[in-house]
Design a protein around this nucleic acid. Structure first.
Length: 824
RNA sequence: GCCCUUGUGGCGGAAUCGGUAGACGCGUUGGACUUAAAAUCCAAUCGGGGUUAUCCCUCGGUGCCAGUUCAAGUCUGGCCAAGGGCACCA
């Protein structure tokens, strides 16, 4: 064994060995219980960054730990490989996106292997390959048949820079999630998935996700945005029309003083009188020009114009005017709002500005407000509300809605904020949407037998302002599957989030050529036992995947409701207090770390300083410290190889110091096992490695000669240490194991077991408190009962002096730990 | 405005049940080895005060203010700050 640790040489050797011997292959037929560990698959951007390293190392340690504990572990990887960067690179360098993507995948695959992640590469899934995207298209067709995929004209989010539409989830603060440019509204006919059909399911089933953090669950709940209220219908005086509004405050219905429709409201022209037409047209044109950001700004002063027409309040018979204002949103509720200025702050501001009446209908009985200064939005009792006067407003919500239901001008209504998922993209590098447009038959799905609809290669990537796919001379012209006549292919491709919404299912059955996956295999491996990835996917990917799982369940393709039982959202990797990014120039290249210190040091360090869920601050000194520690472990073995054997036998009876070391080992096994299995607290796991190493060094330092008993104890301690470290420092562990004479890999060993009786010190430190303050510490035997502990405490000279002349009120004894004497 | 998360030394962070606050590491300081440096090893390291025959004693201390308790980083109530999410959603 080399005296010194040379990770560069040994890691390369082991990597080659693992690859040649296919050691991480997972079989479907095993008696062992299954465990599915999954990292969010990467976009093949070119190189791994430290966030990847952290993500994959965490999952790898979990996978390896489960394998050592007797599970049949599925730990796959793949590539989320459709998307804009490949296309942009193609435009800039004239390269084909497929070639660019393949090169990146090849390089990053090499990095993952260097990092020592135990993937079953046989199950690798690449979303841009035909054998994958044909099934993405197939799933689209199943959703289409079920009515869950549809095309409609709508105001959609348009990113000019990316040249495509975006889903609501991809618009962050009015800006594109990818390129940060301001998003505009456009009216376009686009493909949607009907995720809103699952709004209630997606919300309700969050309760089933015990293994998810509350932060992610509340983010999803907020996004789904359920609210309960009523639809109330108001007759228009001047026209034979009815305007339905959605409200969560039917209790305030007697306080309506005007009604607002959105500028894009469908009947707005009909509702406008000739005298008001010009002003309304101008207002609407203006509203159209505003960006989403301007329009949604809460600081902006509310504006609007009257339409000239009126509605009747069926509860009071009162007539009130109709207005249009852009604070009413066409896409939420019915696009119309009943305005109760007295009890809604937005309506209040608007009414003040335009001198509209304010009518109080809810009051706090103790301190009535006339709403001359501000709206009263708290709970209270109804006034000016006919038969409902005196009723609590919480009860009135129900009673008033019921009256509307009974009289045919209203209904109870649950409303969600969630919108349908816009999946069309006007881009080349994605899975083509498998439909054609026939001049006679209209929209027709491509028959399953004709899948995949291949991406054309005869395209011009240099075009500006349209998708390269439209430049193909061969792609668009096709034949209608129904009538055989001329048809055009859809040129939009699918959002890459469609591809990533089912990849975790494909891993269960990656080579299936008849179906995306067999029901049997997907039910066997899923749900994912542990999913690990970044918090940035809290809504996007995780919500879409949950939707897909539910939709595929309803299609009869699988039998579970939720795809991911446990979710670990890892924190960001920071350097100097901010997120590592190329623009800030504070990135650390994993290759450099592999080169200088080896992958084991990288793995150890990325787990060592923070718990996985928290942000991790990269420090060069920390890397150095981990490298030193590995050297220390290495030397423990290289300097003592002659005393360490794998087939040692611990004698029954041990000397005191040997017994102590054995106990330290058992304690380490216990705490490491607990820390990994409970919260994946790898930072404390690594602390235990260091403590155990320190304890072994201390023990060794006291011995010049080792007798047979010593050698057995030393062997037990050192081999336990390296086994405990093996999920983290994978190469070093295998190398040392081999040097110790093993024919088989340390990764095929069983996890260390501990004896509860030995996993504690042979003596205890009895803490003696007076009035809750520590006054003395006394070494005592481990097995003493409470009375004996009390006696020991009372016999302490120090304690005797301190309680001299005082009255003992009572004495509390915590078994094996503490005596507290309460004195006056 | 609403919701979630987090507040512990110079720093990252430990601390099953309420029971020794600061494990482990980084950094710093001192020492050993060395011609010297690096590496390595040893020791010290929350703050104030006392005594300094360096071993103790004592007080304070986990964002702030109260409370419960023999005992609170941990439980309860009320605040404050930071990070994140949602938001003219009717």
């Amino acid at each position: 064994m080399n005296e010194n640790y040379f990770p560069q040489e040994l890691e390369k050797r082991w990597q080659k060995f693992y690859e040649e011997n296919d050691v991480f292959k997972t079989t479907d037929d095993s008696d062992k219980p299954k465990y599915y560990a999954l990292s969010m698959f990467p976009y093949p951007s070119g190189k791994l960054h430290m966030g990847h390293v952290r993500n994959y190392t965490i999952t790898d340690v979990i996978a390896r730990f489960k394998k050592l504990n007797g599970f049949n572990v599925l730990h796959p990887i793949g590539w989320d490989s459709f998307g804009l960067p490949a296309e942009n690179a193609a435009m800039q360098h004239g390269a084909n996106p497929a070639v660019w993507t393949d090169e990146n995948i090849a390089y990053m695959t090499g990095q993952l292997k260097r990092l020592g992640i135990s993937y079953d590469w046989d199950r690798e899934v690449t979303t841009c390959k035909e054998d994958y995207y044909r099934w993405t298209q197939w799933i689209f067709l199943q959703l289409y048949k079920k009515g869950l995929a549809y095309k409609k004209e709508a105001a959609v989010n348009w990113c000019e820079k990316c040249g495509t539409v975006l889903a609501n989830e991809q618009v962050i603060d009015g800006k594109c999630w990818r390129c940060d440019s301001v998003v505009e509204k456009k009216y376009l006919s686009q493909w949607f998935f009907k995720i809103t059909d699952y709004a209630e399911d997606l919300l309700k089933d969050l309760d089933k996700l015990k293994g998810w953090g509350d932060n992610v669950k509340t983010m999803q709940a907020n996004w789904i945005g359920k609210s309960q209220g009523a639809i109330l219908k108001f007759k228009v005086v001047e026209k034979d029309l009815e305007i339905p509004v959605y409200t969560t405050r039917p209790d305030t219905v007697h306080g309506i003083t005007y009604l607002v429709v959105a500028p894009e409201y469908k009947n707005i022209e009909e509702l406008t009188t000739p005298e008001n037409k010009q002003a309304v047209e101008e207002y609407r044109a203006n509203a159209r020009k505003l960006t989403e950001i301007e329009r949604l700004s809460t600081e902006r002063i509310k504006t609007g114009v009257p339409l000239g027409t009126h509605c009747i309040n069926p509860f009071t018979g009162e007539k009130f005017p109709l207005w249009t204002a852009d604070y009413a949103l066409v896409e939420y509720g019915t696009g119309a709002v009943m305005a109760v200025p007295a009890h809604d702050t937005r309506d209040y501001d608007f009414a003040k500005k335009y001198n509209l009446p304010i009518k109080v209908v809810i009051q706090n009985s103790e301190s009535p407000s006339d709403c001359s200064e501000s709206a009263y939005v708290e709970e209270g009792v109804l006034v000016n509300s006919n038969e409902f006067n005196g009723m609590k407003n919480t009860e009135a919500k129900k009673a008033i809605t019921q009256k509307a239901v009974d009289n045919g001008y209203g209904e109870f209504k649950t409303q969600y904020r969630l919108r349908d998922w816009l999946i069309s993209r006007q881009r080349y590098w994605g899975a083509p949407i498998p439909v054609v447009y026939c001049d006679k038959c209209g929209i027709q799905p491509v028959p399953e037998t004709q899948l995949p609809v291949r991406l054309p290669e005869d395209v011009d990537f240099s075009v500006v302002g349209k998708s390269p796919i439209t430049t193909s001379p061969t792609f668009q012209d096709t034949i209608c599957p129904v009538c055989g006549g001329h048809a055009r292919r859809e040129t939009d491709t699918m959002d890459t989030f469609v591809c990533s919404s089912w990849y975790y299912l494909r891993y269960a059955d990656p080579h299936n050529t008849n179906l995306p996956f067999s029901k049997e295999l997907v039910n066997k491996w899923l749900p994912v036992d542990q999913y690990v990835g970044g918090i940035e996917h809290a809504i996007l990917h995780l919500l879409y995947s949950r939707f897909f799982t539910k939709a595929l369940r309803d299609l009869g393709l699988l039998d579970f409701d939720e795809p991911f039982s446990n979710l670990l959202t890892q924190g960001m990797v920071l350097k100097d207090g901010s997120k590592m990014s190329k623009s800030k120039g504070n990135t650390v290249d994993p290759d450099e770390i592999f080169e200088n210190y080896g992958a084991d040091t990288a793995r150890l360090f990325i787990l060592s300083d923070s718990p996985p869920a928290r942000d991790f601050d990269w420090s060069d000194a920390g890397v150095e410290g981990c490298y030193k520690f590995l050297n220390r472990v290495w030397k423990l073995f290289s300097n003592n190889q002659e005393y360490i054997t794998l087939d040692y036998k611990l004698p029954e009876k041990l000397s005191k110091e040997n017994d102590d070391l054995v106990r330290v080992v058992h304690m380490a096994i216990k705490s490491i096992t607990n820390d990994i299995s409970h919260d994946f607290q790898f930072n404390t796991v690594i602390s235990r490695y260091r403590e155990l190493t320190n304890a072994i060094y201390d023990w060794r330092g006291k011995k010049t000669e080792l007798n047979e008993e010593d050698k057995a104890v030393f062997s037990f301690a050192t081999t336990s240490l390296i086994k405990l470290m093996s999920p983290v420092t994978v190469f070093m562990a295998d190398e040392i194991w081999k040097e110790l004479g093993s024919e088989t890999s340390i990764h095929d060993e069983k996890w260390c077991e501990y004896d509860e009786n030995l996993a504690k010190a042979s003596s205890i430190t009895l803490v003696v408190q007076i009035n809750g303050k520590v006054k003395d510490k006394i070494e005592a035997d481990e097995g003493l009962d409470n009375d004996s502990l009390k006696e020991i405490a009372m016999n302490s000279q120090k304690i005797k002096d301190l309680i001299e002349g005082k009255t003992i009120v009572k004495t509390i004894v915590v078994p094996k730990k503490l005596v507290n004497i309460v004195v006056k």
